[in-house]
Design a binder for these strands. Structure first.
Lengths: 231, 231
DNA sequence: GGAAACCAAATCGTCATACTTTTGCGGTGT
DNA sequence: ACACCGCAAAAGTATGACGATTTGGTTTCC
Protein backbone atom coordinates (compact mmCIF):
# COMPACT_ATOMS: atom_id res chain seq x y z
CA UNK A 1 0.00 0.00 0.00
CA UNK A 2 2.93 2.27 -0.69
CA UNK A 3 3.75 4.76 -3.38
CA UNK A 4 5.92 2.94 -5.85
CA UNK A 5 9.06 3.70 -7.78
CA UNK A 6 11.77 6.23 -7.21
CA UNK A 7 9.50 8.96 -5.88
CA UNK A 8 8.42 6.45 -3.25
CA UNK A 9 12.00 5.88 -2.23
CA UNK A 10 12.66 9.60 -1.96
CA UNK A 11 9.47 9.93 0.04
CA UNK A 12 10.47 7.15 2.40
CA UNK A 13 13.61 9.01 3.30
CA UNK A 14 12.48 12.62 3.13
CA UNK A 15 9.10 12.12 4.78
CA UNK A 16 10.41 10.56 7.99
CA UNK A 17 13.20 13.11 8.15
CA UNK A 18 10.71 15.94 8.12
CA UNK A 19 8.00 14.26 10.20
CA UNK A 20 10.49 13.38 12.92
CA UNK A 21 11.77 16.92 13.12
CA UNK A 22 15.24 15.97 11.91
CA UNK A 23 14.71 18.60 9.23
CA UNK A 24 13.18 21.38 11.32
CA UNK A 25 10.33 23.74 10.60
CA UNK A 26 11.32 26.56 8.33
CA UNK A 27 14.25 24.70 6.83
CA UNK A 28 14.66 25.34 3.13
CA UNK A 29 15.61 22.66 0.64
CA UNK A 30 16.46 23.22 -2.98
CA UNK A 31 15.25 20.85 -5.64
CA UNK A 32 18.69 20.57 -7.15
CA UNK A 33 20.14 19.67 -3.78
CA UNK A 34 17.67 16.81 -3.41
CA UNK A 35 18.49 15.57 -6.91
CA UNK A 36 22.07 15.14 -5.87
CA UNK A 37 21.29 13.75 -2.44
CA UNK A 38 19.15 10.96 -3.85
CA UNK A 39 20.79 10.60 -7.21
CA UNK A 40 17.55 10.96 -9.12
CA UNK A 41 16.27 13.31 -11.75
CA UNK A 42 14.31 16.45 -11.35
CA UNK A 43 11.07 14.74 -12.35
CA UNK A 44 11.33 12.30 -9.49
CA UNK A 45 12.19 14.91 -6.89
CA UNK A 46 9.36 17.13 -8.02
CA UNK A 47 6.79 14.36 -7.78
CA UNK A 48 7.92 13.38 -4.32
CA UNK A 49 7.85 16.98 -3.19
CA UNK A 50 4.36 17.38 -4.64
CA UNK A 51 3.14 14.53 -2.48
CA UNK A 52 4.73 16.08 0.61
CA UNK A 53 3.07 19.32 -0.39
CA UNK A 54 -0.26 17.50 -0.55
CA UNK A 55 0.31 16.47 3.07
CA UNK A 56 1.14 20.09 3.91
CA UNK A 57 4.54 19.06 5.21
CA UNK A 58 6.30 21.42 2.82
CA UNK A 59 5.48 24.31 0.55
CA UNK A 60 7.35 25.02 -2.64
CA UNK A 61 7.82 28.62 -3.70
CA UNK A 62 9.64 30.12 -6.63
CA UNK A 63 12.95 31.74 -6.04
CA UNK A 64 13.08 30.51 -2.46
CA UNK A 65 12.83 26.72 -2.50
CA UNK A 66 11.03 24.01 -0.64
CA UNK A 67 10.29 25.15 2.91
CA UNK A 68 9.26 22.83 5.72
CA UNK A 69 5.91 24.02 7.02
CA UNK A 70 5.18 24.56 10.71
CA UNK A 71 3.86 21.44 12.38
CA UNK A 72 0.53 23.10 13.00
CA UNK A 73 -0.22 22.94 9.29
CA UNK A 74 0.63 19.28 8.74
CA UNK A 75 -2.13 16.84 7.79
CA UNK A 76 -1.80 14.94 11.02
CA UNK A 77 -4.47 12.47 9.96
CA UNK A 78 -2.56 11.32 6.91
CA UNK A 79 -1.63 7.67 7.51
CA UNK A 80 1.88 8.17 6.15
CA UNK A 81 2.50 11.15 8.41
CA UNK A 82 1.25 9.15 11.38
CA UNK A 83 3.53 6.22 10.53
CA UNK A 84 6.51 8.49 10.06
CA UNK A 85 5.93 10.27 13.34
CA UNK A 86 5.38 7.00 15.17
CA UNK A 87 8.72 5.78 13.88
CA UNK A 88 10.66 8.88 14.84
CA UNK A 89 11.37 11.28 17.64
CA UNK A 90 7.76 12.45 17.81
CA UNK A 91 6.56 9.03 18.87
CA UNK A 92 5.50 9.99 22.41
CA UNK A 93 3.47 12.99 21.27
CA UNK A 94 1.94 10.98 18.48
CA UNK A 95 0.99 8.16 20.81
CA UNK A 96 -0.61 10.61 23.22
CA UNK A 97 -2.64 12.26 20.47
CA UNK A 98 -3.78 8.94 19.13
CA UNK A 99 -4.59 7.75 22.61
CA UNK A 100 -7.01 10.64 23.13
CA UNK A 101 -8.47 10.09 19.70
CA UNK A 102 -9.09 6.46 20.54
CA UNK A 103 -10.83 7.44 23.76
CA UNK A 104 -13.11 9.68 21.76
CA UNK A 105 -13.78 7.47 18.78
CA UNK A 106 -13.72 3.84 19.82
CA UNK A 107 -16.51 4.00 22.40
CA UNK A 108 -18.71 5.81 19.89
CA UNK A 109 -17.83 3.21 17.28
CA UNK A 110 -18.69 0.40 19.67
CA UNK A 111 -22.08 1.96 20.36
CA UNK A 112 -22.80 2.31 16.66
CA UNK A 113 -21.59 -1.22 16.00
CA UNK A 114 -24.11 -2.57 18.48
CA UNK A 115 -26.89 -1.39 16.21
CA UNK A 116 -25.22 -1.45 12.79
CA UNK A 117 -23.06 -4.58 12.76
CA UNK A 118 -23.99 -7.34 10.34
CA UNK A 119 -24.49 -10.90 11.54
CA UNK A 120 -21.12 -11.83 10.05
CA UNK A 121 -19.49 -8.97 11.95
CA UNK A 122 -21.01 -10.17 15.22
CA UNK A 123 -19.93 -13.75 14.64
CA UNK A 124 -16.40 -12.74 13.81
CA UNK A 125 -16.26 -10.41 16.78
CA UNK A 126 -17.26 -13.20 19.14
CA UNK A 127 -14.70 -15.59 17.76
CA UNK A 128 -12.00 -12.92 17.90
CA UNK A 129 -12.85 -12.31 21.54
CA UNK A 130 -12.36 -15.95 22.48
CA UNK A 131 -9.18 -16.32 20.42
CA UNK A 132 -7.93 -13.20 22.17
CA UNK A 133 -8.61 -14.81 25.50
CA UNK A 134 -6.80 -17.98 24.51
CA UNK A 135 -3.75 -16.16 23.19
CA UNK A 136 -3.61 -14.07 26.36
CA UNK A 137 -3.81 -17.12 28.62
CA UNK A 138 -0.99 -18.75 26.67
CA UNK A 139 1.01 -15.51 26.88
CA UNK A 140 1.44 -15.61 23.10
CA UNK A 141 2.03 -11.91 22.58
CA UNK A 142 2.35 -12.01 18.79
CA UNK A 143 -0.91 -13.83 18.24
CA UNK A 144 -2.54 -11.68 20.88
CA UNK A 145 -1.45 -8.51 19.13
CA UNK A 146 -2.81 -9.71 15.81
CA UNK A 147 -6.18 -10.54 17.26
CA UNK A 148 -6.29 -7.35 19.29
CA UNK A 149 -5.70 -5.29 16.17
CA UNK A 150 -8.30 -7.27 14.25
CA UNK A 151 -10.77 -6.83 17.09
CA UNK A 152 -10.51 -3.06 17.27
CA UNK A 153 -10.46 -2.71 13.49
CA UNK A 154 -13.58 -4.82 13.23
CA UNK A 155 -15.45 -2.75 15.79
CA UNK A 156 -14.50 0.41 13.92
CA UNK A 157 -15.58 -1.09 10.61
CA UNK A 158 -18.79 -2.52 11.99
CA UNK A 159 -19.80 0.95 13.16
CA UNK A 160 -20.86 1.58 9.59
CA UNK A 161 -19.05 4.91 9.57
CA UNK A 162 -16.43 5.05 6.86
CA UNK A 163 -14.31 7.56 8.75
CA UNK A 164 -14.24 5.42 11.86
CA UNK A 165 -13.46 2.42 9.69
CA UNK A 166 -10.40 4.12 8.28
CA UNK A 167 -8.94 4.57 11.74
CA UNK A 168 -8.56 0.81 11.93
CA UNK A 169 -5.12 0.79 10.39
CA UNK A 170 -4.02 3.68 12.54
CA UNK A 171 -5.17 2.00 15.73
CA UNK A 172 -3.36 -1.10 14.52
CA UNK A 173 -0.18 0.91 14.16
CA UNK A 174 -0.60 2.23 17.69
CA UNK A 175 -1.07 -1.23 19.15
CA UNK A 176 1.88 -2.57 17.21
CA UNK A 177 4.06 0.35 18.27
CA UNK A 178 3.00 -0.01 21.87
CA UNK A 179 3.99 -3.66 21.88
CA UNK A 180 7.24 -3.14 19.98
CA UNK A 181 8.41 -0.43 22.32
CA UNK A 182 7.35 -2.36 25.39
CA UNK A 183 4.93 0.30 26.47
CA UNK A 184 2.46 -2.23 27.75
CA UNK A 185 2.52 -4.97 30.34
CA UNK A 186 4.38 -8.00 29.01
CA UNK A 187 1.37 -10.07 29.79
CA UNK A 188 -2.07 -8.77 28.87
CA UNK A 189 -4.13 -7.93 31.94
CA UNK A 190 -6.96 -10.38 32.56
CA UNK A 191 -9.27 -7.48 33.31
CA UNK A 192 -8.66 -5.91 29.90
CA UNK A 193 -9.30 -9.25 28.23
CA UNK A 194 -12.59 -9.63 30.00
CA UNK A 195 -13.57 -6.18 28.82
CA UNK A 196 -12.98 -7.20 25.24
CA UNK A 197 -15.32 -10.12 25.68
CA UNK A 198 -17.80 -7.75 27.27
CA UNK A 199 -17.63 -5.43 24.27
CA UNK A 200 -18.15 -8.34 21.90
CA UNK A 201 -21.09 -9.67 23.89
CA UNK A 202 -22.71 -6.25 24.14
CA UNK A 203 -22.35 -5.61 20.41
CA UNK A 204 -23.71 -9.05 19.61
CA UNK A 205 -26.62 -8.43 21.94
CA UNK A 206 -27.29 -4.98 20.53
CA UNK A 207 -26.59 -3.26 23.84
CA UNK A 208 -25.08 -0.01 22.64
CA UNK A 209 -24.70 1.63 26.04
CA UNK A 210 -22.93 -1.37 27.50
CA UNK A 211 -20.63 -1.74 24.49
CA UNK A 212 -19.74 1.92 24.69
CA UNK A 213 -19.04 1.77 28.40
CA UNK A 214 -16.85 -1.32 28.19
CA UNK A 215 -14.92 0.04 25.22
CA UNK A 216 -14.40 3.34 27.01
CA UNK A 217 -12.93 1.46 29.94
CA UNK A 218 -10.53 -0.31 27.61
CA UNK A 219 -9.25 2.77 25.83
CA UNK A 220 -9.07 5.03 28.87
CA UNK A 221 -7.12 2.26 30.57
CA UNK A 222 -4.74 2.10 27.63
CA UNK A 223 -4.32 5.88 27.71
CA UNK A 224 -3.60 5.89 31.44
CA UNK A 225 -1.08 3.11 31.01
CA UNK A 226 0.53 5.11 28.24
CA UNK A 227 0.74 8.28 30.31
CA UNK A 228 2.26 6.22 33.09
CA UNK A 229 4.95 4.78 30.83
CA UNK A 230 5.75 8.08 29.14
CA UNK A 231 5.83 9.97 32.37
CA UNK B 1 -3.98 27.00 1.31
CA UNK B 2 -4.21 25.34 -2.08
CA UNK B 3 -1.76 23.58 -4.34
CA UNK B 4 -0.62 26.13 -6.85
CA UNK B 5 0.05 26.23 -10.53
CA UNK B 6 -1.20 24.02 -13.32
CA UNK B 7 -1.17 20.79 -11.29
CA UNK B 8 -3.47 22.58 -8.86
CA UNK B 9 -5.90 23.39 -11.66
CA UNK B 10 -5.90 19.81 -12.89
CA UNK B 11 -6.43 18.65 -9.32
CA UNK B 12 -9.34 21.02 -8.80
CA UNK B 13 -11.14 19.43 -11.71
CA UNK B 14 -10.05 15.82 -11.47
CA UNK B 15 -10.28 15.51 -7.70
CA UNK B 16 -13.93 16.54 -7.39
CA UNK B 17 -14.84 14.42 -10.41
CA UNK B 18 -13.44 11.34 -8.72
CA UNK B 19 -14.49 12.16 -5.16
CA UNK B 20 -18.06 12.82 -6.24
CA UNK B 21 -18.27 9.52 -8.05
CA UNK B 22 -18.68 11.15 -11.45
CA UNK B 23 -15.68 9.08 -12.49
CA UNK B 24 -16.59 5.76 -10.92
CA UNK B 25 -14.49 3.21 -9.06
CA UNK B 26 -12.45 1.07 -11.38
CA UNK B 27 -12.48 3.59 -14.20
CA UNK B 28 -9.19 3.79 -16.05
CA UNK B 29 -7.65 7.02 -17.28
CA UNK B 30 -4.62 7.35 -19.47
CA UNK B 31 -2.03 10.01 -18.85
CA UNK B 32 -2.03 11.08 -22.46
CA UNK B 33 -5.79 11.45 -22.40
CA UNK B 34 -5.56 13.80 -19.41
CA UNK B 35 -2.86 15.84 -21.17
CA UNK B 36 -5.29 16.52 -23.97
CA UNK B 37 -8.28 17.06 -21.74
CA UNK B 38 -6.55 19.75 -19.72
CA UNK B 39 -4.16 21.01 -22.36
CA UNK B 40 -1.09 20.57 -20.18
CA UNK B 41 2.10 18.60 -20.43
CA UNK B 42 2.96 15.18 -19.03
CA UNK B 43 4.91 16.79 -16.22
CA UNK B 44 1.83 18.56 -14.92
CA UNK B 45 -0.50 15.59 -15.29
CA UNK B 46 1.95 13.29 -13.59
CA UNK B 47 2.36 15.59 -10.60
CA UNK B 48 -1.39 15.98 -10.18
CA UNK B 49 -1.88 12.23 -10.43
CA UNK B 50 0.84 11.67 -7.85
CA UNK B 51 -1.03 13.83 -5.39
CA UNK B 52 -4.24 11.91 -6.04
CA UNK B 53 -2.24 8.74 -5.55
CA UNK B 54 -1.06 10.08 -2.21
CA UNK B 55 -4.70 10.44 -1.21
CA UNK B 56 -5.28 6.87 -2.39
CA UNK B 57 -7.94 8.07 -4.81
CA UNK B 58 -6.14 6.50 -7.76
CA UNK B 59 -3.36 4.05 -8.46
CA UNK B 60 -1.10 4.27 -11.47
CA UNK B 61 0.15 1.05 -13.01
CA UNK B 62 2.28 0.37 -16.06
CA UNK B 63 0.59 -0.83 -19.20
CA UNK B 64 -2.82 -0.33 -17.65
CA UNK B 65 -3.18 3.33 -16.73
CA UNK B 66 -4.51 5.34 -13.84
CA UNK B 67 -7.29 3.42 -12.11
CA UNK B 68 -9.74 4.94 -9.69
CA UNK B 69 -9.45 3.07 -6.41
CA UNK B 70 -12.46 1.71 -4.51
CA UNK B 71 -13.86 4.22 -2.06
CA UNK B 72 -12.91 2.01 0.85
CA UNK B 73 -9.26 2.81 0.22
CA UNK B 74 -9.58 6.59 0.00
CA UNK B 75 -7.98 8.77 2.64
CA UNK B 76 -11.30 10.01 3.92
CA UNK B 77 -9.61 12.26 6.48
CA UNK B 78 -7.76 14.25 3.86
CA UNK B 79 -9.15 17.79 3.98
CA UNK B 80 -9.21 18.05 0.20
CA UNK B 81 -11.12 14.81 -0.16
CA UNK B 82 -13.60 15.97 2.46
CA UNK B 83 -14.11 19.28 0.67
CA UNK B 84 -14.56 17.58 -2.68
CA UNK B 85 -17.06 15.12 -1.33
CA UNK B 86 -18.96 17.85 0.51
CA UNK B 87 -19.28 19.75 -2.75
CA UNK B 88 -20.48 16.80 -4.79
CA UNK B 89 -22.99 14.01 -4.90
CA UNK B 90 -21.55 12.35 -1.80
CA UNK B 91 -22.50 15.28 0.38
CA UNK B 92 -25.18 13.50 2.43
CA UNK B 93 -22.97 10.53 3.25
CA UNK B 94 -20.07 12.84 4.04
CA UNK B 95 -22.20 14.98 6.33
CA UNK B 96 -23.44 11.91 8.17
CA UNK B 97 -19.93 10.58 8.66
CA UNK B 98 -18.69 13.91 9.88
CA UNK B 99 -21.70 14.27 12.13
CA UNK B 100 -20.84 11.04 13.94
CA UNK B 101 -17.22 12.07 14.13
CA UNK B 102 -18.23 15.34 15.75
CA UNK B 103 -20.35 13.49 18.29
CA UNK B 104 -17.33 11.40 19.20
CA UNK B 105 -14.65 14.07 19.18
CA UNK B 106 -16.10 17.38 20.24
CA UNK B 107 -17.35 16.33 23.69
CA UNK B 108 -13.96 14.79 24.40
CA UNK B 109 -12.28 17.96 23.18
CA UNK B 110 -14.49 20.09 25.40
CA UNK B 111 -13.58 17.97 28.41
CA UNK B 112 -9.89 18.28 27.66
CA UNK B 113 -10.24 22.00 27.03
CA UNK B 114 -11.68 22.47 30.51
CA UNK B 115 -8.36 21.40 31.98
CA UNK B 116 -5.91 22.38 29.23
CA UNK B 117 -7.16 25.71 27.88
CA UNK B 118 -4.95 28.75 28.41
CA UNK B 119 -6.32 31.90 30.00
CA UNK B 120 -6.41 33.54 26.58
CA UNK B 121 -8.40 30.62 25.22
CA UNK B 122 -10.93 30.92 28.02
CA UNK B 123 -11.31 34.66 27.55
CA UNK B 124 -11.80 34.33 23.82
CA UNK B 125 -14.25 31.50 24.31
CA UNK B 126 -16.37 33.59 26.62
CA UNK B 127 -16.42 36.51 24.29
CA UNK B 128 -17.27 34.27 21.33
CA UNK B 129 -20.16 32.83 23.30
CA UNK B 130 -21.69 36.24 23.94
CA UNK B 131 -21.11 37.43 20.38
CA UNK B 132 -22.77 34.23 19.24
CA UNK B 133 -25.76 35.04 21.39
CA UNK B 134 -25.98 38.55 20.01
CA UNK B 135 -25.74 37.45 16.40
CA UNK B 136 -28.39 34.83 17.00
CA UNK B 137 -30.78 37.33 18.62
CA UNK B 138 -30.33 39.66 15.67
CA UNK B 139 -30.86 36.74 13.26
CA UNK B 140 -27.60 37.64 11.53
CA UNK B 141 -26.86 34.23 10.07
CA UNK B 142 -23.57 35.15 8.42
CA UNK B 143 -22.02 36.57 11.55
CA UNK B 144 -23.50 33.75 13.57
CA UNK B 145 -21.93 31.16 11.30
CA UNK B 146 -18.54 32.82 11.56
CA UNK B 147 -18.65 32.87 15.34
CA UNK B 148 -20.02 29.36 15.53
CA UNK B 149 -17.14 28.07 13.44
CA UNK B 150 -14.64 30.02 15.51
CA UNK B 151 -16.20 28.69 18.71
CA UNK B 152 -15.97 25.04 17.78
CA UNK B 153 -12.52 25.46 16.28
CA UNK B 154 -11.33 27.13 19.46
CA UNK B 155 -12.65 24.36 21.69
CA UNK B 156 -10.91 21.80 19.50
CA UNK B 157 -7.67 23.77 19.57
CA UNK B 158 -7.86 24.45 23.30
CA UNK B 159 -8.06 20.71 23.94
CA UNK B 160 -4.32 20.66 23.48
CA UNK B 161 -4.56 17.68 21.15
CA UNK B 162 -3.11 18.44 17.75
CA UNK B 163 -5.33 15.92 16.00
CA UNK B 164 -8.47 17.38 17.51
CA UNK B 165 -7.21 20.84 16.63
CA UNK B 166 -6.89 19.89 12.99
CA UNK B 167 -10.54 18.96 12.82
CA UNK B 168 -11.38 22.63 13.30
CA UNK B 169 -11.32 23.41 9.61
CA UNK B 170 -13.32 20.30 8.80
CA UNK B 171 -15.98 21.15 11.34
CA UNK B 172 -16.00 24.64 9.87
CA UNK B 173 -16.64 23.20 6.45
CA UNK B 174 -19.51 21.14 7.83
CA UNK B 175 -21.13 24.14 9.50
CA UNK B 176 -20.69 26.23 6.38
CA UNK B 177 -22.12 23.49 4.19
CA UNK B 178 -25.02 22.98 6.53
CA UNK B 179 -25.89 26.65 6.35
CA UNK B 180 -25.38 26.95 2.60
CA UNK B 181 -27.60 24.02 1.84
CA UNK B 182 -30.25 25.13 4.30
CA UNK B 183 -29.92 22.01 6.36
CA UNK B 184 -30.42 23.89 9.58
CA UNK B 185 -33.21 26.04 11.00
CA UNK B 186 -33.12 29.50 9.47
CA UNK B 187 -32.91 30.92 12.89
CA UNK B 188 -30.57 29.37 15.45
CA UNK B 189 -32.45 27.69 18.25
CA UNK B 190 -32.23 29.56 21.55
CA UNK B 191 -31.62 26.27 23.36
CA UNK B 192 -28.57 25.51 21.24
CA UNK B 193 -27.25 28.99 21.88
CA UNK B 194 -27.63 28.58 25.61
CA UNK B 195 -25.69 25.33 25.38
CA UNK B 196 -22.80 27.11 23.73
CA UNK B 197 -22.68 29.54 26.63
CA UNK B 198 -22.83 26.60 28.98
CA UNK B 199 -19.85 24.96 27.26
CA UNK B 200 -17.89 28.19 27.46
CA UNK B 201 -18.72 28.69 31.13
CA UNK B 202 -17.85 25.09 31.99
CA UNK B 203 -14.52 25.27 30.20
CA UNK B 204 -13.71 28.59 31.84
CA UNK B 205 -14.62 27.13 35.20
CA UNK B 206 -12.62 23.96 34.62
CA UNK B 207 -15.68 21.73 34.84
CA UNK B 208 -14.75 19.01 32.37
CA UNK B 209 -17.77 16.79 32.91
CA UNK B 210 -20.19 19.66 32.45
CA UNK B 211 -18.39 20.93 29.34
CA UNK B 212 -18.45 17.45 27.86
CA UNK B 213 -22.12 16.97 28.59
CA UNK B 214 -23.19 20.30 27.14
CA UNK B 215 -21.08 19.83 24.04
CA UNK B 216 -22.46 16.36 23.55
CA UNK B 217 -25.96 17.78 23.65
CA UNK B 218 -25.00 20.29 20.97
CA UNK B 219 -23.48 17.83 18.54
CA UNK B 220 -26.01 15.05 19.02
CA UNK B 221 -28.69 17.65 18.43
CA UNK B 222 -26.97 18.72 15.24
CA UNK B 223 -26.70 15.10 14.12
CA UNK B 224 -30.37 14.44 14.81
CA UNK B 225 -31.34 17.56 12.92
CA UNK B 226 -29.19 16.38 10.05
CA UNK B 227 -30.73 12.92 9.96
CA UNK B 228 -34.13 14.57 10.01
CA UNK B 229 -33.33 16.76 7.04
CA UNK B 230 -31.64 14.02 5.02
CA UNK B 231 -34.36 11.50 5.74
C1' DG C 1 -7.39 -29.41 -28.61
C1' DG C 2 -5.17 -27.51 -24.77
C1' DA C 3 -1.44 -25.66 -22.29
C1' DA C 4 2.82 -23.46 -21.99
C1' DA C 5 6.13 -20.40 -23.84
C1' DC C 6 6.96 -16.42 -26.35
C1' DC C 7 6.55 -12.01 -28.53
C1' DA C 8 4.82 -7.42 -29.34
C1' DA C 9 2.35 -3.33 -28.29
C1' DA C 10 0.75 -0.15 -24.95
C1' DT C 11 1.53 2.61 -21.16
C1' DC C 12 3.74 4.32 -17.34
C1' DG C 13 8.57 5.57 -15.36
C1' DT C 14 12.76 8.08 -15.71
C1' DC C 15 16.12 11.17 -17.55
C1' DA C 16 18.05 15.16 -19.89
C1' DT C 17 17.42 19.65 -21.55
C1' DA C 18 15.60 23.96 -22.85
C1' DC C 19 12.70 27.58 -22.03
C1' DT C 20 9.40 30.48 -19.00
C1' DT C 21 7.88 32.83 -14.92
C1' DT C 22 8.13 34.54 -10.59
C1' DT C 23 10.42 36.90 -6.92
C1' DG C 24 13.83 38.21 -3.51
C1' DC C 25 17.84 41.00 -3.19
C1' DG C 26 21.02 44.34 -4.07
C1' DG C 27 22.36 48.32 -6.28
C1' DT C 28 21.33 52.92 -7.91
C1' DG C 29 19.80 57.28 -7.93
C1' DT C 30 17.16 60.91 -5.86
C1' DA D 1 16.35 57.19 4.06
C1' DC D 2 13.43 55.77 0.51
C1' DA D 3 11.78 54.23 -3.77
C1' DC D 4 12.70 52.25 -8.00
C1' DC D 5 14.75 49.08 -11.22
C1' DG D 6 17.10 45.21 -12.97
C1' DC D 7 19.44 40.91 -12.33
C1' DA D 8 19.85 36.34 -11.18
C1' DA D 9 18.24 32.28 -8.73
C1' DA D 10 14.96 29.02 -8.24
C1' DA D 11 10.81 26.63 -9.29
C1' DG D 12 7.35 25.82 -13.16
C1' DT D 13 6.44 23.91 -17.68
C1' DA D 14 7.21 21.60 -22.07
C1' DT D 15 9.20 18.06 -24.94
C1' DG D 16 11.88 14.29 -26.87
C1' DA D 17 14.06 10.05 -26.03
C1' DC D 18 14.61 5.78 -23.90
C1' DG D 19 13.75 2.09 -20.41
C1' DA D 20 10.78 -1.11 -17.81
C1' DT D 21 6.87 -3.73 -17.23
C1' DT D 22 2.64 -5.70 -17.78
C1' DT D 23 -0.99 -7.41 -20.57
C1' DG D 24 -2.86 -10.13 -24.06
C1' DG D 25 -2.65 -12.45 -28.08
C1' DT D 26 -0.10 -15.78 -30.93
C1' DT D 27 2.59 -19.35 -31.85
C1' DT D 28 4.38 -23.73 -30.87
C1' DC D 29 4.67 -28.01 -28.91
C1' DC D 30 2.86 -31.95 -26.76
Amino acid sequence: MEIQGLPGRVLDELGPAIASGEIPEGAVLRGEELEGRFGVSRTVVREAVRVLEGMRLVASRRRVGITVQPKSLWDVFDPMVIRWRLAGADRPAQLRSLGSLRVAVEPAAAALAATHATDDDRRELSSLAVELTVAAREADLTTFLGHDIAFHALVLRASGNEMFAHLGDTVGAVLTGRTEYHLMPHQPEPYAIRLHREVADAICGGDAAHAERAMRTIVTGALEELNLQLG
